Computed example of a mutant assay.
Amino acid sequence: MGWLQRLFGMGKPKDAQVNPPVQAAPQTTAQAPASTNAETIAPERVGLNGEYDQSGLAKRVALAFDEDPDLADEERLWVAQTSGTIVLKGEVSDQATLNKMTSIARGVNGCTAVDTSQVKVG
């Protein structure tokens, strides 16, 4: 079972990307049309296809983990986000794996930090 399926109960959507192009933020009726007042989505709220998603950063990190075959066996680790910080919780098999996961998470657009204080190694 992949990261997206295990953590978010979803398969990989068609055309999902770790760092997709950002769509314009939804406009309210009080705002000007998108052509004159296009607001962009905060990087940590960009979903798998560039749409707004409250958990977008965590989902994109999960997708990045799915794309690395070496990380498939880490089933006791969870991914969450607090604003631009990715929070890893649980247990990993070894420090090298945690280092790799931290590096991958940092490479996802919108990630400002990775908190591994809740991860047990071993």
Rank of each mutant, 00 (worst) to 15 (best):
S35G: 08
S35M: 10
N37M: 07
N37Q: 09
A38L: 09
A38M: 12
E39C: 07
E39G: 12
E39R: 14
T40C: 08
I41C: 08
I41E: 02
I41A: 05
I41D: 03
P43Q: 03
P43A: 14
E44S: 13
E44F: 11
E44V: 05
R45D: 09
V46K: 01
V46F: 04
V46T: 08
L48K: 12
N49D: 08
N49S: 13
Y52Q: 14
D53G: 03
S55I: 05
S55F: 05
S55Y: 04
S55C: 07
S55T: 09
S55P: 01
G56D: 09
G56N: 11
A58S: 13
A58I: 08
K59F: 06
R60L: 10
R60A: 08
V61S: 02
V61N: 02
A62H: 01
L63C: 10
L63H: 06
L63N: 03
A64Y: 03
A64Q: 05
A64W: 00
F65Q: 04
D66A: 05
D66G: 03
D66H: 04
E67Y: 08
E67Q: 15
D68T: 12
P69C: 07
D70L: 13
D70C: 07
D70P: 04
L71T: 11
A72H: 11
E74C: 09
E74P: 03
E74M: 09
E75G: 12
E75N: 14
E75Y: 08
R76S: 12
R76G: 05
R76Q: 12
W78E: 13
W78Q: 14
W78A: 14
W78Y: 10
A80Y: 14
A80W: 06
A80Q: 13
Q81G: 02
T82G: 07
S83E: 15
S83Y: 10
G84R: 01
G84T: 12
T85A: 13
T85I: 09
T85P: 01
T85M: 13
V87I: 13
L88W: 01
L88P: 00
L88Q: 00
L88C: 04
E91S: 15
E91N: 15
V92G: 01
V92H: 01
S93K: 15
S93F: 05
S93M: 08
D94N: 15
D94C: 12
Q95S: 06
Q95P: 00
A96C: 05
A96Y: 04
T97R: 02
N99M: 09
N99E: 15
N99H: 09
K100E: 02
M101S: 04
M101K: 02
M101N: 02
M101E: 01
M101Y: 01
T102Q: 04
S103K: 15
I104T: 11
I104M: 09
G107V: 11
V108M: 06
N109E: 11
N109H: 07
N109W: 03
G110A: 09
G110N: 06
C111D: 02
